[in-house]
Design a protein around this nucleic acid. Structure first.
Lengths: 240, 240
DNA sequence: CGAGTCGTTGATATCTTTCAATCCCTGTGG
DNA sequence: CCACAGGGATTGAAAGATATCAACGACTCG
């Protein structure tokens, strides 16, 4: 993988702009920066193979990263789609375990790579940071449950509705927009659906006036009806 | 919920026997014990409702506990089946977030309940413990991925095979036994299957000589064939 | 012995996947 | 400027696997 040779001071500056490091002591960021690299990755580049021992912990500086499992029928199951400021590899770094998923970038991306050894040492030596990382992991565990709840919904429609509602902004009165963080096929793979099914569901919801779709922007116009659509006798209604 | 009034010293003694607290400083266990209770719960008792603010962090002393999501079609999706020494509620306790799942006991059980406030305070004041809890959470995140990988398998057979292989003991030459940690319907619900489908798959695998089932004990006799059975043209073969 | 829970088995319906063709958009090169 | 290639998305028709509904059998407990 290509990595830019970047001066630690510039890496430090980059770190300062990432949400990931908000509130971290400068002194520690400096030590992390000195062992860090900045990777420049072309679209579709694979970053990590399942089973790899991670040399680095990664933080997304720009672009899109997708974590996924490769299933026997030659399809992917997407675990997460990450954007700027999000990270992956902490769990493996902390436990020195092999990575249980594959990682690839969805478009040209910049990834900050922190040396796992340095990371572990710094984390452990600073109680405040340990707490911070612990909280982040706790948050991720809760997020996983929410994701799983959506994937566990018994019908494709409910899964898509669940996904849209999960991305509703906190403060809002009437309607909201969801911008899909990746290709539709990847969103589908995150919901445990094929892209075809995902497409059909969006199409139907659209025809019923609940949402309007244009590219990767989805406008939820009638949240009320969207959440009540459960009765599921639904893909048929729109002229199937 | 019934809770035994138990002297802190006895609670402390109980804690000492739980794997959860192995290696914890006695001093801290004493402080945790003073704010702790011991719940005695009858079969099927609900411990936590989804959305509850947790007053306690729970550790299983005896019995079986199941964490699950209630889905719209009135079925459960099981997240975990816990036995002695396992715990739940840390993430919520650490973040003061409402619990995202329901919890019930599968049989008469004893649960140790640690006050979340005391727990948080103690954890944060002792760097060593924070690290320990962080590592536990990291482990749980990796476990979640493994579980999800199994649930993501494209056929019921692969899911069951995956489940069985996940429970293979590390050291072994020829065959192994898996004791299901709960009712078959709960295992099925953990795999995202109905109990009927789970039953059929076990039956077929059994007829093909890969495994033998007696109650909740499953003997994997031909691991070789079990893992190669993928071709999936399979439920039909056994006289469906 | 009867009630209740759990598990098995069977028949049917339904939903999603799969396979295939078409469309749309974008970037590229003649 | 247009043609064309490529990736992505959509749409259609068919097949297949699981869910659902229902009945039965096994076991436990009171």
């Amino acid at each position: 993988m290509n990595h830019l040779s970047v001066a630690p001071t510039q890496i430090l500056e980059t770190m300062g702009r990432l949400a990931y490091f908000q509130g971290w002591p400068l002194e520690i960021m400096e030590r992390l920066a000195s062992g860090a690299k900045l990777f420049v990755l072309p679209k579709n580049q694979v970053v990590v193979h399942k089973g790899d021992r991670l040399e680095y912990l990664y933080v997304v500086v720009s672009g899109r990263v997708r974590l996924f499992l490769s299933l026997p029928n030659n399809v992917e199951r997407v675990l997460a789609l990450l954007g700027k400021g999000e990270s992956f590899g902490e769990s493996c770094a902390v436990l020195s375990e092999p990575c249980p998923f594959d990682v690839a970038v969805g478009q040209d991306s910049h990834l900050l790579a922190l040396d796992t050894m340095v990371y572990r040492r710094e984390i452990r030596q600073h109680a405040e940071l340990t707490t911070r990382v612990m909280e982040r992991m706790a948050q991720r565990l809760l997020d996983n449950v929410r994701d799983l709840e959506i994937c566990a919904q018994p019908s494709s429609v409910l899964r898509v509705v669940g996904y849209l509602m999960q991305h509703k902004p906190g403060t809002n009165g009437q309607g909201f927009e969801v911008v899909l963080p990746g290709r539709k096929r990847d969103i589908a793979a995150k919901l445990g659906l094929t892209q075809e099914t995902f497409s059909r569901v969006l199409s139907c919801l659209s025809k019923q006036g609940c949402i309007s779709v244009s590219g990767s922007r989805i406008n939820v116009t009638d949240e009320q009806r969207l959440t009540q659509i459960s009765p599921a006798e639904f893909l048929k209604k729109s002229g199937h």
